[in-house]
Simulated scan of single mutants.
Amino acid sequence: MIEYVARSGPPEAMNCPAFICDTCRNQVVAEGIVTWATTIGRDGDRGPHQQTPVYVAHKGRCGRGLELWIEQHYPAADGWIDLWDDLEDFVCQLTHNLTNAFADDTEGTYHPHRLVHPKERR
């Protein structure tokens, strides 16, 4: 996930936002993925859809482990689809959305969704 990591030292102490791997808990630098699951697109249902938080992992072993964890907590049998994206692409889209409101997009439709944390699942 994106977390603030405390830093001390010159020129001043600060909290630094960083991508922290949800598998090994180390910082993800350059080669990483974001992964999540959603119910969007199932059987033509127009929503409201459910979505998990977005998780971060290193590519490779950490990413595969995190995807297995997501599949266990959000099973396909319950209508969940797991998705992932390269961290670099995620950051580009996030930067774009910082200054471009969904409401101003006349060509697309943004679907309502409900965020579902693992502890909420029954």
Rank of each mutant, 00 (worst) to 15 (best):
K59W: 03
L87Y: 02
N15M: 09
G65K: 07
E31Q: 15
D105Y: 02
G108M: 04
L87I: 10
L68G: 09
N15Q: 11
T35I: 15
H113Y: 02
W84Q: 10
L94C: 08
P17D: 04
N15T: 05
T39M: 11
H111D: 12
T109R: 04
D22T: 01
A101C: 08
R61P: 08
P53H: 03
E67G: 06
T52K: 08
G65S: 09
A18Q: 14
H111P: 12
N97G: 02
D82T: 12
Q93D: 05
D105F: 01
P112C: 00
T106S: 05
Y110Q: 00
F19T: 13
P75Q: 06
E71R: 14
G44L: 01
T35K: 05
L94I: 01
V116P: 00
R42I: 13
C21W: 03
H113V: 00
R46K: 05
D22Y: 01
L98I: 00
T38H: 08
H96G: 02
A57N: 05
N97M: 00
V54L: 05
D89Y: 01
A18K: 15
A37N: 09
L94K: 09
T35C: 14
G44E: 02
Q50A: 06
Q50L: 07
Y74S: 09
E107A: 08
K59P: 02
A103L: 04
Y110D: 01
P17Q: 06
H73D: 09
T39S: 14
G47E: 04
T95G: 06
R61A: 14
H58E: 11
A76F: 02
W69T: 14
N100R: 05
N100M: 06
V56C: 14
D86W: 13
I20L: 10
N26Q: 15
H117Q: 10
I33S: 14
I40H: 07
T99H: 04
I81R: 15
A18Y: 04
